[in-house]
Nucleic acid binder design. Sequence first.
DNA 1: CGCGGTCAAGTGGCT
DNA 2: AGCCACTTGACCGCG
Length: 297
Amino acid sequence: MKIGYPCMNETLDCSSARTFRLASYSEERLIQTVEMNLACLRRILEYNLEHGLLFFRLTSGLVPFASHEINSYNWQEHFKMTFRRLGDFIKKHNMRISMHPDQFVVLNSPNQNTVKNSIAELVYQGSILDLMGLDSTAKLQIHGGGAYGDKGSAIHRFAEVYHSQLPDAVKARLCVENDDRTYSLQDCLVLHELTGMPVILDNLHHECVNNGEPLSEAVLLAASTWHPEKDGVLMMDYSSQSPGERKGKHIQSIQEDLFHDFLVETEGTELDVMLEIKDKEGSARKALEVARAMGRL
DNA sequence: CGCGGTCAAGTGGCT
DNA sequence: AGCCACTTGACCGCG
């Protein structure tokens, strides 16, 4: 089992998601920013290695405006070697990588322009992983999208876009994750049937929206959608509810007893865990200790 | 130099 | 009807 955290490191004094306003766009600014972002990413990966954190989610902000029409610069070529070196480091240390395109990526939107922009964003994020030379076990995780008052047809529209419009390079990496209000695990399993995409399970979202499956059963169902060679082992997002706050809100810092219970419930299934917890690597390191003490690493 | 309004993009639940 | 949260705040103009 690999344990990790998303996007940013709070210990280090750098960000790999620096950006700028569209109004300030220039090629020079773009190059400068990407350079800083990738340098910071390198430091984060080194930190992670040093602390045994072998799962990491890359921020989608590595290359600002990468899928925006204003950006016609060939940053792929310009940063080719830097990406390759990052990828070599990742592979050398057997790290697992994911990316999570944000809420604007909606493949089943009735708005064709939204779909077009979504695909461009997926192509961009996939190309990061391609430039790093990572295989298809490095994943892009998205949600089902909107329901538009008729989730059944929204699901089928998703599948149709998947088959008719997505490049193979994206399809090879795409996964669907259950969300906290619309697409349950069961809905994601239908999407899996229609497309072959593996299903990422988020335990907190599953608490919010489910069809009565206990977590232990949900984990088995999700794991069955992962092809061991092509996809790697099941990825899960782990969090717990922030007490007294809006349903689905992530907790500030890991509660070790709950994480312990989670590991008990998932016993017997191989999985990599992404900790979606506010204090990032702090909680990830605590989780590592819990897992270590239980002999799960 | 610190604060606060705003930032490329969509959706649905809550107040 | 408008606000807010979402995998992650960061930028930038203003005082």
